[in-house]
């Protein structure tokens, strides 16, 4: 903060920033608010209850959808985050950075419905081609490879989430000095060992953040999932069909609210934890010898 700046003006800017955050959060808070109303959405009377949260687990449609969503989230995270990590390392070492950057960030710019449609038609055609090859060879083993299924939904979601993981990991890697890897190599560690012992502990926070982010994105994604999934329902497809037909059930509000509670707690936890750790480190550093190089 500029020391000559009017503190009131500075405060005003902060107030504006928080107001924007609050406005963006308003729908979320509203859903939370509704989730505790015994009379559900749109009722004139508000009676606080936790009933709907209890009912989530007896709503088989919701629980079934949740199970699929969770599986998708886990598989996508397990594949996409390591891939983003590899891609980030490739990007760091690459001479020509334009190609990897373009390929890894372009999915951000392709709207969900367009990406979903393009992949849907590609998979359907690929499936037809595979069946045709199978027929030619007299085997049916290729028939189900690219039929719309868990696999196709997973591929679509990996493409959707990779850019976010890539950027998050790249940001944490920015602080890592490659001299440390070289020093580890000079100490006799193999390339893999140097990565695992030296680099990974320092970018762990980024990898975990990317994982958390990927899980949340998969949980909340509707368009790509609904276009590419097979016969199963996920959390968001259940919500949409409720919305467009009978209106969301109170359990769905409760479920949404619960997911956001968990997610906000996770992000809030990360923020607070890093804050505390940074403070603690700074205090130790201040207490001991003066650091000359970081």
């Amino acid at each position: 903060m500029n020391e000559y700046e009017n503190p009131w003006f500075h405060g005003l800017k902060w107030a504006y920033l928080l107001l924007v955050v609050l406005t963006l959060m308003a729908p979320v808070l509203y859903v939370m608010y509704i989730s505790f109303n015994a009379n559900g959405f749109g009722a004139n009377e508000y009676v606080f209850t936790l009933e709907w949260y209890g009912l989530i687990f007896s709503d088989e449609l919701l629980i079934g959808a949740l199970r699929w969503t969770l599986m998708l989230a886990i598989v996508v995270t397990l594949v996409a985050v390591p891939m983003a990590l590899l891609a980030a390392k490739y990007y760091k070492a690459a001479d020509n950075k334009l190609f990897p950057v373009f390929l890894l960030l372009a999915p951000l710019f392709v709207p969900p419905d367009i990406l979903g449609s393009a992949l849907l038609v590609s998979f359907k055609n690929l499936n037809a081609v595979f069946i045709w090859i199978g027929d030619g060879l007299g085997t049916s083993m290729f028939d189900s490879w690219f039929r719309l299924s868990f696999l196709t939904a997973t591929i679509g979601l990996i493409i959707y989430t990779i850019p976010y993981s890539f950027v998050v990991i790249l940001i944490t890697m920015g602080r890592y000095r490659k001299e440390q890897t070289e020093a580890a190599r000079a100490c006799g560690a193999s390339g893999w060992r140097a990565f695992w012992d030296i680099e990974f502990p320092q970018i762990r926070a980024g990898v975990f953040s990317a994982s958390a982010f990927t899980v949340i994105l998969v949980f909340n994604e509707y368009t790509r999932t609904s276009l590419l999934k097979g016969g199963f329902d996920t959390f968001t497809t259940v919500l949409i069909s409720q919305m467009l037909n009978t209106g969301m059930s109170p359990q769905s509000y409760a479920m949404s609210a619960m997911i956001s509670f968990v997610a906000i707690a996770a992000i809030g936890g990360i923020i607070i934890l890093t804050l505390i750790r940074a403070e603690a480190l700074a205090r130790i550093a201040r207490g001991k010898a003066e650091p000359v190089m970081s």
Partner: peptide, 15 residues
């Protein structure tokens, strides 16, 4: 500013 993303876009839009 990523806090809003903690809730599905469809719910935020619907709300």
């Amino acid at each position: 500013f990523i806090l809003p993303f903690m809730v599905s876009e469809i719910i935020r839009v619907f709300a």
